[in-house]
């Protein structure tokens, strides 16, 4: 676009907050009671990370892979893209993340033995994504029906994935990080432009995750 520097974030906001939140309401209504299944999946994620039964860890990446592909297809492609044409270009990235997670799952490429600060921040972020994020709707005076739930909505799915990755170790970790990080940036920017305080959830997740990674890298350098 010519003269792109004269454009502000607001110029790219194509919809009103009312339309945005109603979209979650409609999406939840259309998919209910699938939420029970994604809730069960979230519990399995937590149990798998906490108990770490060796041969089961690959299931964790598989659950995340399915969540990314499903959210990308059902929410981004079929719903969000109708009010935001730019999302049609983002939805395939969710499929890519799903495929990457699937590869990790098949290769059994992650280990969950990270402890210390990064681990605790990982748990905190994961707990927020699975249990805290759905509460933001009623806490901010919106209808419960517009709650964002892991495996159904993109933000809790991306945030939960960042939490899981903070708890993980593995050579493939760096390829799994960019897409959830970029989504959190994009979604935080969108919510911030709409003037929604909830943008802070995404900004705080990114800030905490970055601090945890920096901490881990410093510690690893110090040890080696």
């Amino acid at each position: 676009m010519s003269e792109w520097w004269t454009y502000r974030a607001e110029d790219f906001l194509l919809f009103s907050p009312r339309v945005y939140w109603r979209m979650f309401e409609l999406h939840n209504a259309a998919l209910w009671p699938l939420h029970l299944l994604t809730l069960a999946a979230s519990l399995i994620i937590i149990l798998l990370i906490a108990w770490r039964p060796r041969s089961w860890v690959r299931w964790l990446a598989l659950i995340l892979a399915i969540a990314w592909v499903f959210v990308g297809w059902s929410f981004l492609w079929h719903r969000y893209a109708t009010i935001n044409w730019a999302v049609a270009y983002v939805a395939p990235a969710f499929a890519v993340e799903g495929v990457l997670l699937l590869i990790v799952s098949l290769r059994d490429g992650l280990a969950f033995d990270r402890r210390g600060l990064a681990g605790w921040i990982g748990y905190l972020i994961l707990a927020f994504a699975l249990a805290g994020q759905p509460l933001l709707a009623p806490l901010q005076g919106r209808n419960w029906a517009s709650s964002e739930v892991f495996g159904i909505a993109p933000d809790p799915t991306a945030i939960a994935t960042l939490g899981v990755l903070l708890l993980a170790r593995g050579r493939l970790l760096p390829v799994l990080l960019p897409i959830p990080v970029l989504w959190c940036l994009l979604s935080g920017l969108t919510l911030g432009t709409m003037g929604e305080p909830q943008a802070w959830a995404l900004h705080a997740t990114l800030a905490l995750a970055t601090a945890a990674w920096i901490w881990t890298i410093i510690r690893q350098r110090a040890v080696s």
Binding site: L13, L14, F15, S16, R18, V19, R22, M23, L26, R79, T82, I83
Partner: peptide, 11 residues
């Protein structure tokens, strides 16, 4: 913005 309401039947 005002008419960008997607598939929302009410809107």
């Amino acid at each position: 913005i005002t008419f960008n309401v997607g598939d929302d039947p009410v809107l």
